[in-house]
Amino acid sequence: MAVRRLADKSIQPKDFAFTAENLAWAKQQIAKYPEGRQASAVIPLLWRAQEQAGGWLPEPAIRTVADLLGMPYIRVLEVATFYTMFNLAPVGRYHVQVCGTTPCMLRGAEALKEVCRRRIGEQMHVTEDGTFSWVEVECLGACVNAPMAQINYDYYEDLTPESFNRILDDLAAGRPVKPGPQIDRQFSAPVGGPTTLTDPSLYTGTGRHGGPSLTDSDAKRPGAAANVSESPVPKAPIADASATTAPSTRRE
């Protein structure tokens, strides 16, 4: 993680103000918290400010949020510099976040990063036309579909350099793209279709049960009481096998 600083003064806008719509939304967020706890709304407000400013947080936005919440400026700056999802420098119209954590790295994230470097340049560099910028991020939680990248709000998974290139081409040309797995796979199901529960009779009502595996009424039938445990009575450890009473797990 690099040192997170505000962008250079020369590219900071002079001022920032929430649009009427966003301001109303912000007031709504603030109202969620009890009197004296307005500072709790700082993250949603910063996020909305980042969205409004085109994907990054200018310095005046930090002050605007602080004033709105009655917080010292430095407290808001602390939050903005702590969370890596707040971009402190301008980003492209499409901000590409390539996962570089172990599963993605093992499945070829390095090649994706190479594509970014070739097409876009260094991390957090915005292309001439303002279309793209990219950054390597930590795990985004789609390890099953590694390697993957997040572009603005969507995940693009099971990428290869070719498919990744194609997505970027399409985005640049304004053609529609399909988020999700880029290979023949449903969500995070196995590649090439399901490998279990493949018996068609499970779904036709002609199997062992003579009906659907689980009917609606089955699902809604009350089960056993929660305190009925099926686990076996714990046995004493081998060394204490001769002990007559079960050892207590709690200290008195």
Binding site: M1, A2, V3, R4, L6, E59, P72, Y73, I74, R75, L77, E78, T81, F82
Partner: peptide, 19 residues
């Protein structure tokens, strides 16, 4: 006068005033 703060995180945490 809450002017000092710790910006950044982890190893990159730094003590400073606002700007």
């Amino acid at each position: 006068v809450p002017e000092l703060g710790a910006i950044g995180r982890g190893e990159d945490m730094e003590i400073t005033t606002y700007l």
